[in-house]
Amino acid sequence: MKYLADVTTLEYDIGKCTGCRRCVEVCPHGVFAMEDKRAAITDRDKCMECGACALNCESGAIAVDSGVGCAAAIITGMLTGSEPTCGCDSNDDSGSCC
C-alpha cells in the first residue's frame, strides 16, 4: 500500500552518507537500501515521514519534516495555529490515535 505520490518532504544528500546503514535498519517501509556502500533511496513515495532515519543519521545526510498524520490532529492544528499533536495522551474522546 502506498499513500499519495510526490508529497513527502524527505531529502537525502548522498554525498554526506558514511554508509553506516542506520537508515536501512530503522525505516519501516524499506525506503533505503545499500548500494555501493552507500544508502540509496528505493521509492520516495513509500516514505511516511516518521523521521526515524533523519534522527539516527549521524552525518546529517537525511532531512524530513516529520509529524503525526492524524487528520483530526492536523485540523485542530490548523484551527488553533499550533503544531498538530494527536489526542492519544489526553483523556478527551478524539478517538483515533496514531
Partner: peptide, 24 residues
Amino acid sequence: ALQFTGSTTYTGMSGVKKELRIGV
C-alpha cells in the same frame, strides 16, 4: 475515512495535509 489516516502504518503528514487542503 480520512480520520483513519491517523491509525494506518503508512500515511504521512504531508499527504494528509494535502487531502485536508482540498477536502475541507
